[in-house]
Each structure stands twice: as C-alpha cells, then as structure tokens.
Design a protein around this nucleic acid. Structure first.
Ligand SMILES: [Zn+2]
Length: 362
DNA sequence: CGTGTTTGACCTGCGC
DNA sequence: GCGCAGGTCAAACACG
C-alpha cells in the first residue's frame, strides 16, 4: 500500500515535472522567436539549429510558426514519457532501473564527434591530456564544443525515484560524496550512442530529500527517441539561450525580463541564469506546486539567492525579488561575457561556417 | 557472455 | 608544494 502510494505520487510528480518542463520549453522557444525577430541577422543560425534539433526526424524548415508545431509535438511526447516512466517503475520502485533518459535533443550537427572511440582505447593508459588534445585540434569546433560543454542546465524536480526518467539511457560512471551534503552525487553518461558527450549528475537536496537535482551537460550527437525529446529540447534550448544571452550583445538583456513576464503569472516553474559558478548554469526549478493558490506559503523561508553567492541562484518565490535577482543575473552575465568574450567572439566570427556545419543535411 | 553498477584510485584545478 | 574538492577511470563485480 505504501509502495503503491509512493508509486502513484511519483507518477504524479513525474507528470508535474513534465508539465513544467514543457512550460519551460515553450518559454525558451518564445524567447528565441522573439530574439530572432528582433535581430534576424546572427540569430538565424540559432534558429536553424533549433529547428534541426526539433525535427531530427522530420527535416528542417525555417518558418517561424513551425516552432509551435514542434512544441505541440514535444507536448504529446512529454506525456508519453511520463506514462512510460510510470510503467517502468511499476516493477521496482527503488532499485535502480537502467532505464533513464534525458535531454538533449540536438541532433548534433554542431558537434561532430571527434572519434567515437576516443574515450575508450585512446586514453586508456592516459594521463594524457584531454585538454591537450583540445588545443591541438581544430579551434573552431573546439570552441563551439567547449562552450557548449561549459553550459549546464540543472533541473530541480520532486521525485522519489533515484533518478528522473527522461527517455535516454545512462550509464553510471562515478559517485562521490558531496561536501556539505549527506547525499552522494552520481555521475552518468549517455549510452545511446558511442561517443555521445552528454553527461548528467544527479543529486538529492540535503534538506529536502524529495527534491532531485539533475544537471545536464553537453549535447547529444545522435537522434533521440520521442520520449527523450521533451527534456532534451528543453535543456538544449535553455543552454543555447544561456550561451546566446551571455554574448556581448544587447539582447542578452532581454532574457531576464522575458522570463519575468512570462513565468511569473504561471509561477509553477522558474528559470535562473547564473554565471557565478565555474560554468554558466541555467536552473529550472520545477519543485513548486503547480497550483500556488493552494499553497501560498508567502512567508517563505527561502533565502534570497543573490545574498548567498555560495549556491547558484535558485528562485523559489518570484514577485518582489525578481528585479534584483535578474539584475544580478545580468551582472553575472556581463561578467561572464567578459570572461568568455574571446571564445564567443571566435565562435561568432564565422557565422556562416557555423550555420553550414549545423545544417549539413540540408 | 554482454552489459551495467560499484567503488577505490587517480587526475586536475584551485586556494593557501 | 600541499591539501582539498570535484570529476573520471577502470577493475571487479552483479545480473539476465
Ligand atoms: Zn546521447
């Protein structure tokens, strides 16, 4: 009975999470659309990229409205995901089932895998520089990949399962005890294709163990099953948005405001951009109850994110704080863009090259 | 027997 | 240079 209850609750959570994810996804898309409209010049590449990701199976168009179609698609798929996850879990609740999933939807025109076997035999005896390689190889791809790899998308969701099911397959390759945290952090790598660079780490929140923090990093270089598209496209577009926002351009400023306007009314999910961490990180907070009306909890014990630089800014409660928070985000962004400017510039220098490489099939 | 998890060793970057 | 902390590797192991 307990088990069943737990299962049901978990299913519910999963559905909620999917819903929030979707919402996020929509926002990101809208944002990108907006961005595209405002300056179609360079952001066009982004658009193409996006399309590529979305229509991995379909093929890419470039009409703006298309994006909504994609969205719809993603929505239905998200549902599937939740269902499948519940099914999968019905058997065992806490044992780690190998099925998981994930994110990244980009088919990866961008990232060309260097060599599929680079990780196995290549550096077996290693100690060799994984970084050293990077310097020697082609700078352009490298820069792109490096930038992409740096970006992280972390998702906070309530889940009692050891890992949220996102449609991808993961192999665990490590586990560590986090410092100020009784719960260990687990490291996973995507196994859907050899050489897929995507990694994720899963950690439970110390105080509230019902909250699972999943951090995605990298972009898939292979097609994804429909079930994985939801999370994948969301995270990848979030990452892209982060990166584009971090660039030394004015429209980066649009992000926060856009977030504020769009998310606030819904208030069920929240995104925060933080560059204070070693890597730029987007945090999608899906932990809030979907209907805030029932659980107002206004005098929330949440800490003001920007007052505590230690952890990434995670927004728990919108309203009054937003301006400041976003202000800080902006500040961080600008800082970040300063730091990253060399790389970004390098990336930006050859937009045509980029777009062509992105869309090789077309 | 292939595939995935466990787990301690190992590597690297960073602050002192 | 040392120690710490975050990540990763890979041998051993578990499982179907
Ligand atoms: Zn992958």
């Amino acid at each position: 009975m307990n088990g069943e209850n737990r299962r049901l609750r978990d299913m519910l959570n999963q559905v909620k999470n999917n819903y929030n994810t979707l919402q996020m996804h929509m926002m990101t898309m809208m944002h990108q659309q907006q961005q595209n409209q405002e300056r179609d010049g360079k952001s066009e590449e982004v658009k193409h990229q996006h399309h590529n990701n979305q229509n991995g199976h379909g093929g890419g168009g470039q009409v703006v409205p298309r994006q909504f179609m994609d969205l719809g698609l993603a929505a239905s798929e998200a549902e599937e995901t939740s269902q499948s996850s519940s099914e999968g879990r019905s058997g065992r609740e806490k044992s780690r089932s190998p099925a998981n999933n994930t994110e990244a939807g980009s088919t990866g025109g961008i990232i060309r895998e260097d060599s599929p076997e680079k990780e196995s035999p290549g550096w077996g005896p290693n100690k060799i520089p994984r970084l050293g390689n990077t310097s020697t190889n082609k700078p352009a791809d490298q820069a792109t990949e490096a930038t992409m790899r740096k970006a992280r998308v972390s998702v906070r969701a309530r889940s009692e399962a050891p890992m949220i099911t996102d449609g991808c397959q993961w192999r665990k390759y490590g586990q560590k005890m986090a410092k100020g945290n009784p719960c260990p952090r687990a490291y996973y790598r995507c196994t859907m294709a050899a050489g897929c660079p995507v990694r994720k780490q899963v950690q439970r929140c110390a105080e509230d163990r019902t909250i699972l923090i999943t951090t995605y990093e990298g972009t898939h270089n292979h097609p994804l099953p429909p079930a994985a598209m939801g999370m994948a496209s969301t995270t990848s577009s979030a990452a892209r948005m982060l990166l584009s926002g971090s660039m030394p351009s004015a429209d980066g400023l649009m992000n926060p405001n856009f977030f504020a306007r769009t998310l606030l009314p819904c208030s069920s999910s929240m995104a925060t951009i933080s560059a204070s961490a070693p890597f730029p990180t987007v945090t999608l907070d899906l932990t809030q109850s979907p209907n805030p009306l029932q659980f107002p909890r206004p005098p929330n014990p949440f800490q003001v994110p920007f007052s505590n630089p230690t952890h990434n800014n995670i927004l728990a409660n919108p309203a009054a704080l937003l301006p400041q928070i976003f202000g800080q985000a902006l500040y961080n962004q600008s800082k970040f863009s300063g730091l990253q400017s060399s790389q970004d510039l390098e990336g930006q220098q050859h937009p045509s090259t980029m777009s062509s490489s992105i869309n090789p099939s077309n």
